[in-house]
């Protein structure tokens, strides 16, 4: 095993081009466990901790450019307004110690369906900025996950940042685990209201081979909200609409039975979380509307 220590992003790209089998390591959450337990013996380990650029974020007009290594703790503390869904998801990642080192780049690189960031990124809308010596490209989050623990990266590419759309409305994230802290998701759900476009987006974790959106459910809810004039009248979402949305989210799952939970439970829990997060975000939207109206 060789240990590569690129001091800059350019050096990292060059090293990855030279050694496409090199395994990047940043927070170590997944890679070190695989090494400690002899599940993996990569030819090259490439440390990204010295690439300072990866720890930075910029808040733009439309989106936040979030460096791949920005620790979850930083996201929780500094980006709650811009990226509320991701901030909530970050708070559920593993333990405080791991949140201090791990970042979204690791979740995306591993592309485990159980990664906590995925549902929030899917719901918010995001693009993954990847680069190689051949050039840079942005992969829409919906096209990023290609299979169980597989993603759209080419062998010579590295994840540099993720561009997450700034919240234009309430967002929520919820995750079921069988412990009250430090737990891998049995399943998870992210929901974002986008009042500007009058749409909702969703993300489901650990309930299908990849993180997925519940697109049929989104379309149903978009239509129902539009039809009922809910965005304008700020009424409570009809329980039957919320339940239909929850059922469609359940239907978007393609879960398995495993030691963490049954497929049937996962489908059920995603439905419950969909209904609850819709209630929470919609209440929040209505509250914000009232405040706005009051101020006007």
């Amino acid at each position: 095993m060789d240990f590569l220590r690129p001091a800059s992003w350019e050096e990292a790209l060059a090293a990855k081009a030279e050694h496409p089998t090199a395994v990047p390591i940043a927070g170590g959450t997944d890679v070190m466990v695989e090494i400690n337990f002899d599940h993996r013996r990569p030819e090259y380990l490439m440390d990204l901790n010295r690439v300072g650029d990866l720890f930075e974020w910029e808040v733009g007009a439309e989106s936040v450019r979030l460096g791949a290594s920005v620790p979850y703790t930083r996201i929780m503390e500094n980006l709650r307004a811009e990226l509320p869904g991701l901030a909530l998801a970050s708070h559920t990642v593993a333990s405080p110690q791991i949140r201090n080192r791990g970042g979204v780049g690791g979740n995306l690189g591993t592309a485990s369906p159980a990664g906590d960031a995925h549902p929030a990124l899917l719901a918010a809308g995001a693009e993954v900025e990847v680069e190689s010596v051949r050039g840079s490209r942005r992969i829409p989050i919906d096209e990023f996950y290609t299979g169980v623990k597989r993603n759209a990266l080419a062998a010579d590419e590295l994840i540099r940042a993720v561009h997450v759309r700034k919240a234009d409305g309430p967002q929520q994230f919820s995750k079921v685990g069988t412990r009250n802290a430090m737990v891998i998701a049995v399943c998870a759900f992210g929901l974002a209201l986008h009042p500007q476009t009058r749409t909702v987006r969703t993300g489901i974790g650990s309930a299908a081979p990849t993180p997925v959106r519940a697109k049929v459910a989104e379309e149903f809810l978009n239509a129902a909200l539009e039809e009922g004039g809910f965005w304008d009248n700020g009424k409570i979402v009809t329980p039957s609409v919320a339940q239909r949305f929850a059922d469609l989210c359940s239907a978007a799952c393609n879960p398995i039975d495993d030691v963490r939970g049954t497929a049937s439970y996962r489908r059920h829990a995603v439905g419950v979380m969909a209904r609850r997060t819709l209630t929470w975000t919609w209440e929040s939207y209505r509250g914000a509307r009232r405040i706005t109206e009051g101020a006007a």
Binding site: L88, H91, T92, Q172, F173, S174, K175, V176, G177, R179, N180, A181, V183, A185, V272, M273, R276, T279, W280
Partner: peptide, 16 residues
């Protein structure tokens, strides 16, 4: 949420 079932995972705000 730290004092509710589900804890930090933010699964309920009292519902259920």
């Amino acid at each position: 949420v730290r004092q509710l079932p589900g804890g930090l995972s933010n699964t309920t705000h009292g519902e259920g």
